[in-house]
């Protein structure tokens, strides 16, 4: 379970997150929507400790992310993350990309790591591309590679930071399909997204962020069918 209590984040004097309270249960799929600069992505970065916070309580499975004694590298193994840019390691094949972290971080043997990698690549539909370098993959394939790379660490949670925003429109579908598959398998997911269709169809809950504040959270039927906040209404009217 991810528990966030009164989380504040500043970039210099800019107050980016203004007291976020949020719990995400095991098995839940939460979509986070809102305009650019509303703090959605920053929230994900704070959850896995890529950004320091000024005041917080972000707790993952009982471990405070930002506490001094926390082994952040260990904690991050629980929190798979997929970014807007896929960031494939260009010097490694698809298989090596996925096998690297299990090998060096988890200390798996080379054979074991490669087996896990092959399995995860098949999982995301890249079973034919094991020995291909990322430069020979499309953006959508590279993003699926990034998903496989995160899954290979066997995380409890997956954080998606606008995973489809940098893709050509015709490649968005295959990545959303992969995310949908993960959701159906019961993966706990927090998806920062601009894909309203995905948020509506796949999520258990949708959170709307506006200028660093979580204005509204609820089941998709509520957020899309009967939004309570004025900002949510305005935002949804604009994106439709």
């Amino acid at each position: 379970m991810i528990e966030i209590h009164d989380l504040h984040k500043y970039f210099g004097s800019l107050h980016v997150l203004k007291g976020i309270n949020l719990n995400v249960e095991k098995g839940e799929v939460l979509s986070v929507i809102g305009a650019s600069g509303s703090g959605k992505s920053t929230l994900l970065y704070c959850i896995n400790g890529l950004e320091p916070v000024q005041q917080s309580n972000a707790v993952v499975d009982g471990t405070d992310v930002h506490a001094k004694g926390t082994d952040i590298n260990k904690l991050r193994q629980q929190l798979g993350m997929v970014f807007q840019q896929w960031n494939s390691f260009p010097h490694l094949t698809a298989l090596e990309n996925v096998a690297l972290a299990p090998k060096i971080v988890k200390g798996k043997s080379k054979a074991e790591a490669r087996e896990i990698a092959a399995q995860q690549l098949k999982h995301v539909g890249l079973g034919e591309k094991l020995d291909v370098y990322p430069s020979a993959l499309s953006g959508g394939q590279q993003q699926r590679l990034a998903i496989a790379r995160a899954l290979a660490m066997e995380p409890e949670y997956m954080l998606f930071d606008e995973a489809t925003s940098a893709l050509d429109p015709e490649l968005v579908g295959e990545v959303l399909e992969t995310m949908r598959m993960l959701a159906e398998e019961g993966m706990t997911m927090i998806c920062v997204t601009h894909e309203m269709g995905f948020a509506r169809d796949v999520s258990d809950r949708v959170a709307f962020f506006h200028q660093g504040v979580m204005e509204e959270i609820g089941p998709p039927e509520q957020i899309f069918g009967n939004p309570q906040s004025e900002h949510t209404q305005k935002f949804l009217a604009n994106v439709r």
């Binding site: 991050r76 970014f83 972290a101 060096i104 971080v105």
Partner: peptide
């Protein structure tokens, strides 16, 4: 962003330097 991706997989600072920065930057 590349280095953040490496760290998000649980790599330590030095693992990121050795397995990501060295080969990519070196080339």
């Amino acid at each position: 962003p590349m280095r953040r991706a490496a760290r998000s997989l649980g790599m330590s600072y030095w693992q990121d330097l050795r397995h990501v920065v060295l080969p990519i930057g070196g080339r």
